[in-house]
């Protein structure tokens, strides 16, 4: 049930209310557009997150399998010694991308400039190469998944916030404004009718005097 806004029943107030209603309706349209875009992005990100998670699990299981084969071939101690030399920092380009007003992190793994992985080629076999390659792929998948999951969280939060705004506009602000405008219009019409009746009465009285 819309409530009347307490305003002075003047024409200026009516104009103000009409302006406010126009603004609210314009914003409602934009907020609705935004909500539909955010929902679409959310669903797409959710799909991509599921795919990314599945591929990450696959890649990690393949990587561990390859690593265990390499460890079986070289022995744990020898493999650990070789891998200690191959430790390197991971460089990630981090930034933001804006999706309909939501700032979502954007991460990208920088490809290392060096071609060698750091371990000696003489003491190691292709099993180590294979597992290192798979580890690189898994790292990429981890970064991709982290970006998607954070994006999903942020989009979800923004959707619930936008929904609240849409509902407030749709069920409270706009109906209240419309009801008040309707009330004021009726009041002014009533005043006009009263004025007309009064003038007619005066006219009759004047006619009688003459």
């Amino acid at each position: 049930m819309p409530q009347l806004i307490k305003v002075r029943p003047t024409k200026i107030e009516l104009v103000k209310l009409k302006r406010r209603l126009a603004l609210a309706q314009r914003v409602q349209k934009i907020v609705k557009d935004r909500l539909s875009i955010l929902t679409m992005e959310f669903l797409q990100t959710a799909k991509e997150t599921v795919e990314a998670k599945r591929s990450l699990l696959d890649e990690i299981s393949q990587m561990y399998r390859a690593l265990s084969v390499a460890a079986g071939y070289h022995g744990y101690v020898a493999l650990e010694k070789e891998l200690l030399a191959s430790e390197a920092d991971v460089a990630v380009t981090a930034g933001l991308r804006n999706v309909a007003g939501v700032r979502i992190p954007s991460l990208e793994l920088k490809e290392p400039a060096r071609t060698m992985r750091g371990y000696g080629l003489l003491e190691t076999s292709s099993f180590v190469d294979h597992s290192a390659k798979l580890a690189q792929k898994a790292l990429k998948a981890i970064i991709e998944l982290s970006e998607l999951q954070r994006g999903l969280e942020l989009l979800g939060m923004e959707i619930s916030r936008t929904k609240r705004i849409t509902n407030a506009l749709e069920y409270i602000i706009i109906p209240n404004l419309q009801a008040t405008i309707h009330y004021l219009t009726m009041k002014f019409e009533e005043r006009d009718r009263e004025e007309k009746a009064r003038l007619k009465r005066v006219k009759v009285l004047l006619a009688r005097k003459e």
């Binding site: 914003v27 934009i30 907020v31 007003g101």
Partner: peptide, 8 residues
């Protein structure tokens, strides 16, 4: 709200 949606 209008400003926010086009901030990007």
């Amino acid at each position: 709200e209008l400003r926010l949606v086009n901030a990007g």
